[in-house]
Deep mutational scan, measured.
Amino acid sequence: RTAFSSEQLARLKREFNENRYLTERRRQQLSSELGLNEAQIKIWFQNKRA
């Protein structure tokens, strides 16, 4: 289980509010910017949509 920092969570929530689905390219960008792997971001979005 991933423990996200408050900064990472704030960024993910802001991104989710703008778009509930990420393109592969956007997921790669977020992964690089947040220091998370793409799978972690993908799962976070899946869980948030559920």
Results as ranks from 00 to 15, higher is better:
Gln40Asn: 05
Leu34Arg: 00
Arg20Ala: 12
Arg14Thr: 11
Gln8Ile: 13
Leu36Thr: 03
Arg1Tyr: 15
Leu12Trp: 02
Trp44Ala: 02
Glu15Ile: 04
Phe16Val: 02
Lys48Gly: 06
Thr23His: 04
Glu18Phe: 07
Tyr21Met: 06
Arg27Tyr: 12
Tyr21Lys: 06
Leu30Ser: 00
Leu9Thr: 05
Glu24Met: 09
Thr2Gly: 13
Arg14Asp: 08
Ile41Gln: 01
Ala10Tyr: 06
Glu33Tyr: 03
Gln28Thr: 08
Arg11His: 06
Asn37Val: 06
Ala39Tyr: 13
Phe4Gln: 01
Leu36Gln: 01
Arg49Thr: 09
Arg27His: 04
Gln8Asp: 05
Arg27Asp: 01
Gln8Arg: 02
Phe16Arg: 02
Thr2Ile: 09
Phe16Leu: 03
Ala10Met: 10
Leu36Ile: 12
Leu12His: 00
Leu34Gly: 00
Arg14Asn: 08
Trp44His: 01
Gly35Tyr: 03
Ala39Glu: 15
Gln28Ser: 08
Trp44Lys: 00
Lys13Val: 15
Asn47His: 12
Ile43Gly: 08
Arg26Cys: 05
Glu24Thr: 13
Asn19Asp: 08
Asn37Lys: 12
Arg27Asn: 09
Asn17Thr: 10
Gly35Asn: 08
Lys42Leu: 15
Ala3Phe: 14
Glu15Pro: 00
Gly35Phe: 04
Ala10Leu: 10
Lys48Ile: 07
Gln40Ile: 14
Gln40Met: 11
Leu9Ala: 04
Thr2Met: 07
Leu9Ile: 12
Thr23Pro: 06
Ser6Asp: 13
Ile43Leu: 13
Arg14His: 13
Ser6Asn: 09
Gly35Glu: 06
Phe4Trp: 06
Glu33Asp: 07
Ala50Met: 12
Asn17Pro: 01
Phe45Ala: 01
Glu24Trp: 07
Arg26Asn: 05
Arg20Ile: 11
Ser32Met: 14
Leu9His: 05
Ser31Val: 07
Glu15His: 03
Asn47Leu: 13
Leu36Pro: 00
Arg26Tyr: 06
Lys48His: 11
Arg1Asp: 15
Ala10Thr: 07
Arg14Cys: 11
Gly35Thr: 03
Leu30Asp: 00
Gln8Val: 10
Arg11Gly: 06
Glu38Pro: 13
Glu24Ile: 11
Gln46Tyr: 09
Gln46Cys: 10
Glu15Tyr: 04
Arg11Pro: 02
Gln28Asn: 07
Thr23Met: 02
Tyr21Arg: 06
Glu24Asn: 11
Thr2Lys: 09
Gln46Ser: 09
Leu30Pro: 00
Arg25Pro: 08
Leu30Gly: 00
Arg25Ala: 15
Ala39Asp: 15
Ser31Gly: 06
Phe45Thr: 00
Ser32Ala: 13
Ala3Trp: 13
Arg49Ile: 15
Gln8Phe: 03
Phe4Val: 05
Glu18Ser: 08
Asn19Gly: 05
Tyr21Glu: 08
Arg49Gln: 10
Leu34Pro: 00
Arg11Asn: 04
Arg49Pro: 04
Gln8Leu: 04
Phe45Lys: 00
Asn17Lys: 15
Ala39Thr: 14
Ala10Cys: 10
Thr2Phe: 14
Ser32Arg: 12
Arg1His: 15
Gln28Met: 09
Phe45Met: 03
Lys42Asn: 13
Phe4Ile: 09
Ala39Gly: 10
Ser6Arg: 11
Glu18Thr: 08
Glu7Gln: 09
Gln28Trp: 06
Ile41Gly: 01
Asn19Phe: 05
Gln29Thr: 08
Asn17Glu: 14
Lys13Tyr: 14
Leu30His: 00
Ile41Asn: 00
Glu24Asp: 13
Leu34Ser: 03
Leu12Phe: 01
Leu22Val: 05
Ile41Phe: 01
Ser6Cys: 14
Arg27Met: 15
Arg27Lys: 11
Leu30Gln: 02
Leu12Met: 04
Gln29Trp: 07
Ser6Val: 11
Phe4His: 02
Asn37His: 12
Leu12Tyr: 01
Leu12Val: 01
Leu34Tyr: 02
Leu34Ala: 00
Ala10Ile: 08
Ala39Phe: 12
Ser31Thr: 05
Asn19Glu: 04
Tyr21Val: 09
Ile43Lys: 10
Asn17Asp: 13
Arg1Ala: 14
Gln40Thr: 13
Arg20Tyr: 06
Arg49Val: 10
Leu12Gly: 00
Leu30Lys: 00
Ala10Pro: 01
Leu36Lys: 02
Asn19Ile: 03
Arg27Ala: 15
Glu38Leu: 05
Arg14Lys: 14
Glu33Phe: 03
Phe45Tyr: 04
Leu22Trp: 03
Arg20Lys: 09
Glu7His: 08
Phe45Cys: 02
Gln29Met: 09
Arg11Gln: 06
Glu7Ile: 08
Lys13Asp: 14
Gln46Phe: 10
Ala10His: 07
Asn37Trp: 04
Ser6Lys: 13
Gly35Gln: 07
Ala50Gly: 08
Leu22Ser: 02
Glu7Ser: 09
Trp44Tyr: 08
Gln8Trp: 02
Lys42Arg: 12
Glu7Ala: 08
Gly35Leu: 05
Ala39Asn: 13
Arg25Gly: 14
Arg49Cys: 08
Ser5Ile: 03
Leu22Asp: 10
Leu12Glu: 01
Ser32Pro: 02
Ser31Phe: 03
Lys48Tyr: 13
Glu15Gln: 03
Thr2Asn: 12
Gly35Asp: 06
Leu22Met: 05
Glu7Lys: 08
Leu36Cys: 07
Ser5Ala: 02
Glu38Ala: 07
Gln46Trp: 11
Gln29Val: 07
Leu22Cys: 05
Glu15Phe: 04
Glu18Arg: 11
Glu38Met: 06
Glu18Pro: 01
Arg26Leu: 06
Gln40Gly: 03
Asn47Lys: 12
Ala3Asp: 13
Thr23Asn: 09
Arg25Met: 09
Leu22Arg: 01
Ser5Leu: 04
Leu34His: 01
Glu18Asn: 09
Asn37Gly: 12
Asn37Phe: 06
Lys13Pro: 00
Lys48Glu: 15
Phe45Asn: 00
Arg27Ser: 14
Arg26Thr: 06
Gln8Asn: 04
Asn19Arg: 06
Ser5Lys: 04
Ser32Cys: 11
Arg14Gln: 14
Ser5Asn: 10
Glu33Thr: 04
Asn19Leu: 04
Asn17His: 10
Leu9Met: 07
Asn19His: 09
Ser32Trp: 11
Ser32Val: 14
Ala39Ser: 10
Gln40Val: 15
Ser5Cys: 06
Ser31Asn: 02
Arg14Leu: 13
Arg14Ile: 09
Lys48Arg: 13
Asn17Ala: 14
Asn47Cys: 09
Ser32Leu: 15
Arg20Val: 07
Glu18Cys: 09
Phe45Val: 01
Lys48Ala: 15
Arg49Asn: 13
Leu22Thr: 03
Glu18Met: 10
Glu15Thr: 02
Ile41Ser: 00
Arg26Gly: 05
Lys13Leu: 15
Leu12Ala: 01
Ser5Asp: 05
Phe16Pro: 00
Lys13Arg: 11
Ser31Leu: 03
Asn17Ile: 08
Ala39Pro: 04
Lys42Cys: 13
Thr23Gly: 07
Glu38Tyr: 04
Phe16Ser: 02
Asn47Ala: 09
Ser5Trp: 04
Gln29Ser: 08
Ile43Asp: 14
Leu22Phe: 03
Ile41His: 00
Glu18Leu: 11
Arg26Ala: 07
Trp44Met: 02
Ile43Thr: 12
Arg20His: 10
Leu36Glu: 01
Arg20Glu: 10
Gln40Pro: 02
Ser6His: 10
Thr2Leu: 13
